[in-house]
């Protein structure tokens, strides 16, 4: 209940900032545009060459769920500190877990909706662009699982890292500088994908999913431990 209240308040506040709205809309559209452009360029290639190109384009939809929460999540705590709104919030019965999880979901849910939304748009565009439709075997189960099954955990990872940075940062500029770090660990499997060091199969997706779940749980635990109410109140006048 309190989690839902916190999430709705954060959205009401966040989406009143036009720059946030624009940046949230711009980044997914840009990524989908890049992906679409790649497919457009490869439309005349033989079908066997189109597959790898199409897969490379899909990587954009694995980067998006990481980039958006990193941007949205980083302001969550440091912003409250700067506005002086954290003390009344901490005086409520809200627990650290609710606060951390709630503020993470604020960043994760829009990131997923936007990612999946522009992915749908991308598929529609591909159907129009490619006379033969989507190359066979490209939208395989492991890829679909990556985009729909792994992206929530990737987004949560990025949001939790951003939150961790946000709760420890001394000001918002420093927090934004460090927020880029949220993306780095999640890029590792993407590099593996794109370099085709490993085949994108169910085993790989399951392994990645397992690692992400473990990382998310560890980060949530670490984030709550590192969220020191007293220190925040004393250091932030």
């Amino acid at each position: 209940m309190r989690l839902r209240v916190l999430v709705l308040k954060e959205w009401a506040e966040l989406f009143r900032i036009k720059m946030v709205l624009y940046s949230c809309a711009f980044m997914p559209l840009l990524m989908a545009g890049f992906a679409g452009f790649m497919v457009w360029q490869g439309r005349t290639l033989p079908p066997e060459a189109q597959g790898p190109l199409f897969n490379a384009a899909l990587l954009y939809f694995l980067i998006l769920p990481v980039m958006i929460p990193a941007t949205l999540g980083v302001y969550s705590v440091v912003g409250e500190k700067e506005q002086g709104t954290l003390e009344p919030l901490l005086a409520t019965p809200l627990s650290d877990l609710e606060l951390f999880l709630g503020k993470s979901l604020v960043a994760v849910i829009p990131a997923l909706l936007l990612t999946w939304g522009v992915f749908g748009l991308f598929l529609l565009a591909v159907l129009f662009m490619m006379p033969g439709g989507i190359p066979e075997g490209v939208l395989s189960l492991p890829w679909l699982l990556s985009i729909f099954g792994l992206s929530p955990f990737m987004a949560l990872f990025a949001a939790l890292v951003a939150m961790l940075i946000s709760s420890r940062a001394s000001d918002s500029r420093a927090a934004y500088q460090f927020a880029g770090l949220a993306v780095v660990p999640v890029l590792v499997p993407l590099i593996v994908y794109s370099a085709r060091l490993l085949a994108v199969d169910l085993r790989f997706v399951a392994l990645e999913g397992g690692i992400l779940v473990a990382l998310d749980v560890a980060l949530l635990y670490l984030g709550i431990k590192a969220f020191r109410r007293e220190e925040i109140l004393i250091r932030w006048k």
């Binding site: 308040k9 506005q83 003390e87 009344p88 005086a91």
Partner: peptide, 14 residues
Amino acid sequence: VGVVPENPGLYKRL
């Protein structure tokens, strides 16, 4: 407890 801190700490955009 109801607390009024020195800085009201309200969400100005809301």
